[in-house]
Design a protein around this nucleic acid. Sequence first.
DNA 1: CAATGATCCTGTCCGC
DNA 2: TGCGGACAGGATCATT
Length: 267
Amino acid sequence: MPELPEVQTVLNGLAEALNGIELISLKCLYPNTVRYVGLEHDEVLPDKVIGLERRGKYLILHLKRSHSLIIHLRMTGKLIIDPCSATENKHQRACFSLSDGAFLRFIDIRTFGKIVVCKSEELPLSLPKLGPEPLGKDFDVPYLQKALMRKGLPVKNALLDQKLVAGLGNIYACEILYRAKIAPQKAANTLSKKNLEQIVLHTREVLQEAIANNGTSISDFRRVDDKTGQFQNFLRVYQKAECPLGHGIKRIKQGGRSTFYCPVCQK
DNA sequence: CAATGATCCTGTCCGC
DNA sequence: TGCGGACAGGATCATT
């Protein structure tokens, strides 16, 4: 499930593959995968990609003439550069043809992923309200302290809220709390200043390590060249039986999602 | 405003 | 072997 490091990995791959490339066409191959906001289909492409941006788990492609594409991979979405035109894939939901003759395929088993096309100036209207970037300077202890002040929900659930901080998902939320030594059930507004410092520190640390390893390929995630990431080899609690110190990992449900944690290391 | 729960969707895994 | 059901979960919407 693509979270911030996986989306960044895709962006890094696309930045290389789409350098100087023109998008010739975009075919929608599954209902509602591609959505045009206040636009006609035929007024957007062909156009050149002039920049890529990531905001939380959203990937944004800026085109030269006044339009932008917002892509969200959700759980099983993949963007694959394919030099071959004849490749069959029953989970292909959309496909760009590129000016170098290759194809950029949007493959998504569970069909939750979306591509939104809008005018660049209306980008803020098509993007939801998101919290600060966890790797940016706005994500710090004073911010967290203020944002969590009135939140009585478990800290694990708080970290998954994209309006609190943009880009964390289930895997990294579990890994951050393990490294920060905080029990996932702990109410967000009861965290100590030390707790908050540890969250900020280890959020940055885990995400940077994961990006350096091209993300985590637990189920479907792939890089644009269809290779897997490597960070699944460095997970300490997610889907593990024991933590690195040999304690048994507990698995619980929070907000309908699995949380993995070490009851000995995390208090 | 805060928090919870249902919803979307399909491949995989488990028990019988 | 096959079938039903549970599970995986990001974001959105509805409800309490």
